[in-house]
């Protein structure tokens, strides 16, 4: 019969050491891990709770940007006025995970490292060009968020590595973002497709910088550069939006499964990218 040990280290180094052991699994909010444990899909021998490490929970402003502790819950993100003002899309993505109850626990790092292609917390982070600070047996490194998922249920993290915090860059004026997903139900559901769009506008309302990320349409969340490029220099005229949707759809490589056909996911990804772009544009002060 299997045995299960629990450890809650207070230093990152201690955590990295513990996690390097085979059969060890990190715990943040536990909203995926506990479900997997109960269903028998995973049977770790050691659970390493990361929430007692300094900085793992909480949000601080640094050099005009934000540093988000990896285990910070969705509920805390949703109540941070400064973060909401600067990165409303990142927050709305995180806040779509699970239900009100789940939001009290679910974290961005957990959502990212569970490595579901449909993770709602991830596309807006990717569109935001967020990075994560990774701690491991060989010290710290910083990497773009989109480099973490390696495929469904797989990450690029080495044994012992875990995410300590996320870094969101400083915001210029006239910048905002948005995340939209489609689920058959209004909540407690998994995205059939999702789109995060991050825009920076010139004073005249044309798009200076645009990033588009798509969820649930490939083995990992996609950063679609061509989709962002389709918006640069435009005021989101209908043709620009059509080009955005086409570029987004061209990048999709989804599977067909019980949650949606490949054809449907691809089509919806274009619709959602277009709608999210319009919301981000309006939030940034643009007028179509």
């Amino acid at each position: 019969m299997s045995q299960l040990a629990y450890l809650a280290p207070s230093s990152p180094e201690e955590a990295a050491k513990a996690l390097a052991a085979s059969g060890a699994r990190p715990l943040s909010g536990g909203t995926d891990l506990l479900v997997q444990l109960r269903s028998g899909r995973t049977s770790p021998s050691l659970i390493v709770d990361l929430k007692r490490i300094a900085g793992a929970v909480g949000i601080r402003e640094e050099a005009g940007g934000f540093v988000i502790g990896a285990s910070t819950s969705g509920a805390v993100l949703g109540e941070h006025a400064g973060l909401l003002r600067a990165w409303p899309g990142v927050v709305e993505g995180a806040n779509l995970i699970g239900s009100t109850q789940v939001q009290g626990r679910a974290s961005l790092a957990g959502n990212l490292c569970n490595a579901s292609p449909a993770a709602d917390g991830v596309p807006a982070l990717v569109a935001a060009r967020a990075t994560c600070v990774i701690v491991g047996p060989n010290g710290r490194r910083e990497a773009p968020v989109e480099s973490i998922p390696a495929g469904p249920g797989k990450t690029s993290l080495a044994p012992g590595e875990f995410i300590l915090e996320f870094r969101l860059p400083a915001r210029p004026p006239r910048a905002s973002d948005a995340y939209l997903r489609l689920t058959p139900r209004t909540e407690m559901d998994i995205a059939v497709a999702g789109a995060g769009v991050n825009l920076v506008l010139h004073e005249d309302g044309t798009v200076a910088e645009a990033h588009v990320a798509l969820g649930a349409v490939a083995p990992t969340v996609l950063h679609v550069e061509a989709a962002g490029a389709a918006l640069v220099g435009t005021r989101l005229e209908d043709e620009a939006l059509a080009a955005l949707a086409a570029a987004a759809q061209a990048a999709c490589k989804p599977i067909s499964d019980k949650r949606g056909t490949a054809e449907y996911r691809t089509r919806i990804a274009g619709v959602l990218a277009r709608r999210a772009a319009v919301i981000a544009y309006q939030r940034a002060g643009g007028q179509r």
Binding site: R185, T186, E187, M188, I190, K258
Partner: peptide, 14 residues
Amino acid sequence: NPGFLDYRMPVASD
């Protein structure tokens, strides 16, 4: 789909 995640009964907000 033997679970409420993928057997989609309505939730209150639906």
